[in-house]
Simulated assay, not measured.
Amino acid sequence: MGSGPEQEHRQFVIDFYGAMAYGELSAFERFSADARFSPTLHDRITIGKLAAEEFAHFELVSAELADLGADVEAAMEPFQAFVDAFHERTRPADWYEALMKAYVSDAVSGDFYRAVAVSLDPPSRALVSRIKADTGQAEVLRVRLAQALSGDARLASRLALWGRRLVGEALTQAQRVTFEHQFLGALLRRTDPASRKAATDALFARLTGNHSRRMNDLGLTA
Score class of each variant (00 low, 15 high):
Lys197Ala: 14
Ser105Phe: 06
Ser212Asn: 11
Glu64Gly: 03
Ala156Asp: 06
Glu64Ser: 12
Lys132Asn: 08
Trp95Thr: 02
Thr221Asn: 05
Gly136His: 09
Gly168Thr: 10
Ala75Asp: 06
Glu73Lys: 14
Phe204Glu: 01
Trp162Phe: 09
Leu171Gln: 11
Pro78Ser: 11
Val13Tyr: 02
Ala75Thr: 07
His87Ile: 08
Ala107Ile: 02
Asp134His: 06
Phe58His: 08
Ala85Met: 03
Met100Ala: 04
Ile45Phe: 15
Met100Asp: 00
Ala133Leu: 12
Asp201Asn: 09
Asp67Asn: 13
Arg196Ile: 15
Leu65Glu: 08
Asp43Leu: 13
Ala170Lys: 04
Pro92Cys: 01
Ala222Ser: 10
Asp121Gln: 13
Leu41Ala: 12
Pro5Asn: 00
Pro78Thr: 12
Asp71Cys: 12
Phe86Arg: 01
Phe79Cys: 14
Gly23Ala: 13
Tyr96Ser: 07
Phe183Pro: 00
Gly18Pro: 07
Ala222Leu: 07
Arg36Thr: 04
Ala75Asn: 11
Trp95Lys: 04
Asp106Gln: 11
Ser26His: 07
Glu169Ser: 14
Ala33Gln: 06
Gly4Thr: 05
Thr40Asp: 00
Thr172Arg: 12
Gln147Lys: 11
Val108Gly: 02
Arg158Leu: 14
Arg125Cys: 01
Thr90Gly: 07
Glu6Ser: 07
Ser105Cys: 06
Arg190Asn: 06
Thr46Leu: 14
Pro78Asn: 12
Ala70Trp: 01
Leu127Val: 01
Ala51Met: 08
Asp43Asn: 12
Ala198Cys: 11
Lys132His: 12
Ala117His: 05
